[in-house]
Nucleic acid binder design. Structure first.
Length: 712
RNA sequence: GGCGAGGUAGCUCAGUUGGUUAGAGCACAGGAUUCAUAACCCUGAGGUCCCGGGUUCAAAUCCCGGUCUCGCUACCA
């Protein structure tokens, strides 16, 4: 395989609307960092870019909710996230931000370029418009009842309660969050990226050229999209937060966040070039540059379909690989910040990386465990017990213990100096050790080049294990007892300790991409400069000079106690309980708290009695119920309203079995306009109540009454 | 419902184009040892390779059907 001239490595831009958890870290940033550290140790020309994604509609919405500005939100989270990464040893060459003027300029230029060459289409459609605020409403500015889970405060693009992606048209009773009025439809023109024009290109590039060297899940997902028929995709929005559309007719419009965010990789590269007096262009234009995107599986489509099409049109290089990771669960459940079931990077740092708790070494402990369970081929699971086991059982017992016993013995038996080699006493064990290090280096290099970071790290630990075995066979502590009777004893001790010391130096080089703080500490113990960590030095058994005085032993890590694990588990459970009750209180008393609110939005705007009077609510009785074919969530209900029987469809199939709800009395919106779904016309709507966990309940009269009774 | 990825030891995962007795680490049990953070080292126990068919001399691996988990997608008044 030919070595690329230079590398450009990107890690997904984190959305600057809140803290990021360790699942994000394990999914994109840690593997990217390991790869980059390895490449840099190889002295390759590499730039590692990332930055905050600060546009999109979620941020201004959140600002409104919290009574602050969008700018204030991004200014709050951008530096925190940046610092979190730093604390965990994620060493970006640049951590940029999409609110920066340079990014606006870059994204504008990109758009203009595509537009001027006819690579974009415009289309005029009807969109929701707020007449009072005199503005089009972006998806996020429209709220309504989620058709999926019935959550009453779902946004036009997504319901935060159930996580379902939505379009504004799908919302029940849409309302503008600006004025509280029902939005009207109005024509607007938008720019589209016609993905359909590039099907042949994508087919060839992904399904032929990369069918075998990309991860199966990534190719599978792409194939699914291509086979499903590619559609033109809107790349602009009616919104005033973001990069302004820089062409005629673009007033009041911005680039869609998914168009502008990946361009953030380019603007970050430009900023890096400015800071370092370099030229950014070859990194994006020269085919000899190897571009790799590190992302989570939720980003596959954007990085493998949409952005590559944009890059191709704009004349840039394409990614050489996109090693997307699956998801990391936590203690048996999906990670979710809003449900309190997660470990925020910020929390981990504050608790564990404090000086008194272990400092930087604890950053490496987290890196070690996360990488050892990295979800490279399937979803994986973080458990605190697993964390403790991995750290205590492998990092401490195998790796750190080898280094420590080497150091202690070297001070006891060799005066704290690197002993000389006595060639006449070298044996097959010594030669085997040297050979094993060389082999391990080859293997680890290979695995790293293939993005198999979990296996690569395992091999490093394995090498330390080999060191323990070597020492066990040599037993220098036994030899030390025979110094007077055995004239060769000291020579044998010297050879053994020399080997262990050279192995330690090699371990420092090989562990460096994974555990940079540890490698640094090992350099300190050996009194060598960081340059020793260069990859080419691995395999060399002459890294520490004979006679060189080394520092006193110092533990690399501390053990993690049972009580600490118990405390973390308790904290996790308590936190999720707190979030749960908060959600519930917010439901009943929305004014109680102004902060984040976790998807629970405040009360809808006040209406007058006449508004309410327009709604005709009736008691109905379900007399038949069956599942709608080819629809997971829909039930087809026949409801008796006294004066007539109606077919009503309801998206509750995930919550109720048809046979269990026959005979149930329910509340019906009887004068709602009919709507066809899955070929069946639904005449009305069933009201449902929903608790904080998303469980649904029928709204029924407390005692059975006549069907058709009105409700007011 | 459609599509994609998974299901292998108690846990986390390997298993290359079908080919002896299905592997590794952790955890567990026994032994040995003391230089080392009760660490290390040696040995051992453990599996209906999700289920059912089929192809084959031979299937964890290939084909068909089913089932469970995750993701994307459709459905959501």
């Amino acid at each position: 395989m030919k070595t690329p001239k230079r590398y450009l490595i990107t890690a997904a831009l984190p959305y600057a609307n809140g803290l990021k958890h360790i699942g994000h870290l394990a999914g994109a940033y840690l593997p990217a960092d390991i790869y980059v550290r390895y490449l840099k140790a190889q002295k390759r020309d590499v730039v590692f870019v990332c930055g905050s994604d600060e546009h999109g509609t979620a941020i201004p919405i959140q600002a409104t909710k919290e009574g602050t500005t969008a700018q204030a939100i991004i200014d709050k989270y951008h530096p925190i996230i940046e610092q979190n990464f730093k604390d965990l040893g994620i060493a970006f060459d640049i951590y940029h931000r999409t609110s920066d003027p340079l990014h606006h300029e870059t994204a504008s230029e990109f758009f203009k370029d595509l537009e001027s060459r006819g690579d974009l289409e415009t289309k005029t459609t009807e969109q929701y418009f707020d007449a009072q605020a005199n503005t089009f409403l972006a998806d996020r500015y429209i709220k309504g009842t989620c058709p999926n889970c019935g959550h009453s405060e779902a946004y036009g693009d997504q319901c935060e309660k159930c996580g379902k992606s939505l379009s504004p048209e799908e919302l029940i009773n849409p309302v503008s969050t600006l004025s509280g009025n029902a939005p009207i439809k109005k024509e607007t023109t938008h720019w589209y990226l016609p993905l359909n024009r590039h099907e042949d290109f994508l087919r060839k590039w992904l399904l032929e050229e990369h069918a075998n060297d990309w991860r199966p899940a990534v190719i599978g997902q792409c194939k699914s999209w291509i086979e499903g028929g590619l559609q033109p995709r809107a790349v602009t929005r009616d919104l005033d937060w973001g990069v302004k559309v820089p062409v005629a007719g673009g007033d009041g419009k911005v680039l869609y966040v998914w168009f502008d965010a990946p361009i953030g990789y380019i603007s970050a590269t430009k900023q890096w070039a400015i800071n370092n007096d370099k030229d950014w262009k070859p990194y994006w234009n020269d085919p000899e540059t190897k571009l790799v995107h590190f992302i989570g599986k939720d980003n596959i489509v954007f990085h493998c379909i949409i952005f590559p099409v944009m890059l191709k049109l704009h004349g840039n290089i394409l990614p050489e690989n996109v090693p997307a990771n699956e998801f990391m669960n936590l203690e048996g459940d999906k990670m979710s910040t809003s449900r309190g079931w997660s470990i925020e990077m910020d929390d981990y740092i504050n608790k564990w990386i404090k000086k008194e708790n272990g400092g930087e070494a604890m950053a490496d402990c987290l890196r070690f465990y996360l990488n050892s369970i990295a979800p490279e081929s399937k979803d994986s699971e973080f458990t605190w017990k697993g964390f403790q086991d991995a750290v205590n059982g492998e990092l401490v017992s195998i790796f750190a213990n080898f280094v420590n016993r080497t150091w202690v013995l070297m001070h006891k038996l060799c005066n704290g100096k690197v002993p000389k080699i006595h060639i006449e006493h070298l044996d097959s064990e010594d030669n085997a050790l040297i050979l094993a290090v060389k082999e391990a280096k080859e293997k680890i290099t290979d695995l790293l080049e293939q993005y198999k970071f979990r296996d690569a790290q395992f091999e490093v630990i394995n090498l330390a294990r080999l060191g323990n075995q070597y020492m066990q066979k040599k037993e220098p502590w036994i030899l030390a007892k025979n110094l007077e009777t055995d004239p060769t004893a000291q020579a044998k001790i010297d050879n053994c300790m020399h080997g262990c010391l050279q192995l330690t130096a090699n371990l420092a080089i090989l562990i460096n991409p994974f555990l940079p703080f540890t490698a640094k500490k090992m350099c300190h113990l050996m009194k060598v400069v960081d340059r020793m960590l260069e990859w080419e030095n691995a395999g060399n058994f002459n890294l520490l000079k004979v006679g060189y005085t080394l520092r006193a032993p110092e533990l690399l890590f501390r053990k993690i106690e049972d009580e600490e694990i118990a405390a973390e588990l308790a904290a996790l459970k308590a936190n999720s309980e707190v979030k749960k009750t908060k959600m519930e209180t917010n439901n009943t008393n929305p004014a109680a708290e102004g902060e984040a609110a976790n998807g629970i939005a405040p009360l809808k705007p006040e209406i007058v009695f006449d508004d309410f009077g327009k709604i005709d609510l009736r008691v109905g009785t379900i007399i038949e119920a069956k599942k709608v074919e080819k629809a997971d969530k829909l039930l087809e209900l026949l409801v008796d309203l006294g004066f007539e029987q109606r077919t009503i469809l309801s998206g509750i199939a995930m919550h109720f079995k048809p046979e269990d709800i026959v005979g149930k009395q329910v509340t019906i919106v009887a004068n709602l306009a009919p709507r066809k779904m899955r070929g069946i016309e639904s005449k009305g709507m069933i009201l449902m109540a929903e608790d904080a966990n998303g469980k649904l309940y029928f709204v029924s009269p407390s005692e059975a009454i006549a069907s058709g009774s009105s409700i007011a």
